[in-house]
Design a protein around this nucleic acid. Structure first.
Length: 513
RNA sequence: GGCGCCGUAGCCAAGCGGCUAAGGCAGCGGAUUGCAAAUCCGUUAUUCGCCGGUUCGAAUCCGGCCGGCGCCUCCA
């Protein structure tokens, strides 16, 4: 039984889709006016993982992530850069897509764009006017919050607490809290024809319109960052439920936000963010409001996508994550444990970890450990992984089980001396393969270890490899002759260049950091 | 001011009423190694911000306090 935390009820609820066996998920995606930063990647990675896990659990899942390509911020940015809004949107959408690909986010089925759904948006708005939930005012259309009895139910605030001053459009609104469904265009702004004159959609309406078209009037999961609870999702619920007279989504899931953290903050003790030097200007806070939030594309030059994915999954999704390079490096060190095991697995079995075709569902992955002690613990760790993930997709708990699993497998290789040149015991080998297949199966449910980590740039590779092999040969001769001074000199010199040597019974292996 | 989240070892982080408080990073000891690296074993929280309360039993529930953070009209 999978349980999910629902913002609507503020509690974990058993997961039962509206239609048995099928799951529709709508995640609020980016407004494409600037290159994305790491904060934008949290939701996609989490929900990509949630889809994988639900699929693994036997559901037929559709995941939709919208792309908002008309908006005041796009208009402002495009006029500043003196390029058409569509061109800006195309450029930033491409940036977004590249970033998702690098993170292994490829489970998204649809990326609906606002500009491609104007008819649906206009139809939605018209219905709301006809039903008396919205009104036209000087070419704008506003949703009348006062006509919805339960307005505020998602953010758990009373309507009176949500009375704003109406912002710049106060004179056109009946009440301060009313929000725009349609905004009339000023001269020169991108505009679409509508029954209320030329204009563009307000911020919230596109999600209501596009989710209805792709997932129906009531779907299963609506997700987004915690910062979207109010006003964005509150307004989506209000307009969709007013329009359809039924719940918009069964479960509302919100991920915690990425915090920008200073690198040297934690010297004096907990929560002292003592800073000095240039970092003094960088306070802890939302990364989207941090001046230091650099484009995600630049980050990918420093860290592999899989490392960042692993970093994001190493915390429960509802909690905030402090971003720091130090933390990413720590997490990267942990990942090495897995990569090294995969190489070891290949040395022992002669076949690549990445060739394993793991069971695609949890039912298929169930196996009988029999009286093999190693396989029994593998089964236990697997159960622990599933238990964690069933509990509101606790990826951090699941990853803990994965670490235990590799350690058990490494221990098995040592205990059974599988790495020694002697003839391999086929029964033991089969057990190792079963255990490793389980590791592969569970990791795949998190979208991890699906292909080998990125190697060093190809150009330098060939010659470097040959030179290193030559050095290994010379060093092997020196060691054979007990000339350890020479052997150590080679190893130390290479270490300074970032090349690590590992002497094994079968020969020396080198790797470049 | 209103609504809400968080405070678990040196750092990061699971656990959210009852087995010995997961796991990672860092450190230390041992096995292994010519020495290393890697791997394995052991070790690092009698205790979960502080103070009360509920309970046979609390890191987990309730109240108060201290500390950090988010949202409150366009940020994922």
């Amino acid at each position: 039984m999978i349980r999910v935390y629902n913002t609507l009820s503020k509690s974990k609820e058993p997961f039962e889709p509206v239609t048995p066996g099928k799951v529709g998920i709508y995640l609020c995606g980016p407004t494409v006016y600037k290159p994305s930063h790491i904060g934008h990647m949290v939701g996609p990675v989490i929900f990509d993982t949630i889809k994988r896990y639900l699929t693994y659990s036997g559901y037929d899942v559709t995941l939709v992530v919208n792309v908002t390509d008309v908006d005041d911020k796009l208009i402002a940015e495009s006029s500043e850069r003196k390029i058409p809004m569509a061109e800006l949107a195309a450029e930033m959408t491409a940036d977004y897509m590249n970033n998702l690909a690098a993170l292994g986010v490829d489970a998204i089925d649809h990326f609906p764009r606002c500009t491609e759904h104007m008819d649906e948006i206009i139809r939605f708005t018209s219905t709301l006017i006809e039903e008396g939930f919205a009104y036209e005012s000087s070419g704008d259309v506003y949703f009348e919050v006062g006509n919805v009895a339960d307005y505020g139910k998602l953010s758990h605030q009373g309507a009176e607490a949500l009375q704003g001053d109406g912002g710049g459009m106060a004179e056109r609104k009946r009440a301060g809290a009313d929000f725009a469904l349609w905004k009339s265009a000023k001269p020169g702004e991108p505009a679409w024809d509508s029954p209320w004159g030329s204009g563009r959609p307000g911020w919230h309406i596109e999600c209501s319109a596009m989710s209805r078209r792709l997932l129906g009037e009531t779907f299963d999961i609506h997700g987004g960052g915690l910062d979207l609870v109010f006003p964005h999702h509150e307004n989506e619920i209000a307009q969709s439920e007013a329009c359809h007279g039924k719940p918009m989504a069964k479960y509302w899931m919100h991920n915690g936000l990425m915090q920008a953290s200073s690198e040297i903050g934690k010297v004096g003790g907990r929560h002292t963010r003592a800073v000095e030097g240039d970092l003094a200007t960088q306070e802890v806070g939302k990364i989207s409001k941090s001046k230091g939030s650099s484009a995600f594309g630049e980050m990918l030059r420093e860290f592999p996508g899989e490392t960042i994915r692993f970093f994001l999954l190493s915390t429960q999704y509802r909690r905030p994550i402090d971003y720091s390079e130090t933390r990413i490096r720590e997490v990267d060190t942990g990942l090495e444990t897995f990569y090294r095991f995969f190489k070891r697995y290949e040395r022992v079995t002669g076949s690549s970890f990445y060739q394993i075709r793991p069971p695609a569902t949890r039912d298929a992955g169930d196996f009988q450990p029999g009286d093999d002690a190693m396989l029994q613990t593998v089964a236990e760790h697997r159960a622990r992984f599933l238990e964690a993930m069933d509990d509101d997709f606790n990826t951090a708990g699941g990853i803990g089980a994965l670490f235990d699993l590799v350690r058990r497998l490494n221990k098995f290789i040592e205990d059974e001396k599988l790495e020694e040149p002697k003839k391999p015991d086929t029964t033991k080998l089969a057990a190792l393969q079963q255990g490793t297949t389980t590791l592969c199966e569970l990791a795949a449910a998190l979208g991890l270890f699906r292909k080998p980590p990125q190697e060093m740039p190809a150009g330098a590779h060939e010659l470097t490899g040959k030179l290193l092999d030559l050095l290994m040969e010379i060093r092997a001769d020196a060691r054979k002759a007990k000339d350890f001074a020479t052997a150590d000199r080679i190893r130390n010199a290479l270490a300074e260049l970032g090349v690590t040597l590992e002497d094994r019974p079968g020969g020396t292996e080198w790797s470049i950091d």
